[in-house]
């Protein structure tokens, strides 16, 4: 059984500070942001996946939510902002809407993190679902307002359901990344 507690600090033993160590550490810390970055990029390519358009917000929102709740240090607000701009540039919807949604999800997760980080997984799932319903409703309202007519409602429902359904997978991915990518610098 592997023990994840940090090694005791004794005089004479210092953390490694070489260039390689720093690069390694940096890449590991940037893993969640890099995942969002590349997920956005790959899902904007012509893969012809069914539901590809709705999958992108689902994955991005779930990832931002999870990391903002548990490890906000690796998903800072500025990074969410930059990733939101990136997602907006790659999608052809109204500008800024995706950005605003990501920031709101991040903000909700950040403000409730002391409660959310302690609750049962299923409660967390439910909370995420409620947040997604709210955010997608906001997206629909904004899209309708910016297009000056009522846009179709069903794709947004599909987007909510898809993000709700992909949450457990993202959670498993998050746990794995947190244990074996972010916190495993000593074994490299």
């Amino acid at each position: 059984m592997k023990n994840f507690t940090p090694p005791p600090i004794r005089p004479g033993i210092h953390p490694r500070t070489g260039l390689g160590y720093r690069i390694d550490h940096g890449v590991r810390s940037a893993a969640p942001c890099l995942f969002v970055f590349f997920a956005t990029l790959v899902l904007s390519a012509p893969l012809n996946l069914p539901g590809q358009v709705e999958l992108m917000p689902a994955l991005v929102m779930g990832t931002v939510f999870l990391w903002s709740v548990f490890v906000p240090a690796l998903m800072p607000s500025i990074a969410v902002f930059v990733l939101g701009l990136w997602a907006d540039v790659l999608s052809f919807g109204p500008a800024g809407v995706m950005l605003l949604m990501m920031l709101i999800v991040h903000g909700v997760a950040l403000s409730g993190r002391y409660t959310l980080a302690r609750v049962n997984f299923f409660v967390l799932w439910l909370v995420f679902g409620v947040v997604m319903v709210g955010v997608t409703a906001l997206q629909w309202v904004l899209c309708s307002a910016l297009a000056l007519h009522i846009v179709e409602f069903l794709p947004f429902v599909f987007e909510t359901v898809l993000s709700f359904g992909s949450f457990p997978v993202l959670y498993a991915g998050f746990v794995w990344t947190y244990r074996f990518v972010v916190n495993n610098t000593d074994r490299s």
Binding site: S77, F81, G84, A95, G96, I104, G107, L146
Partner: peptide, 23 residues
């Protein structure tokens, strides 16, 4: 930081509406 960024996001929405060509 976060409220400021949300304000900027609203600004981006307005900018996208005002200057479509730029976006």
């Amino acid at each position: 930081v976060l409220p400021a960024l949300i304000l900027v996001a609203c600004g981006v929405i307005l900018l996208g509406k005002a200057d479509r060509a730029l976006v």
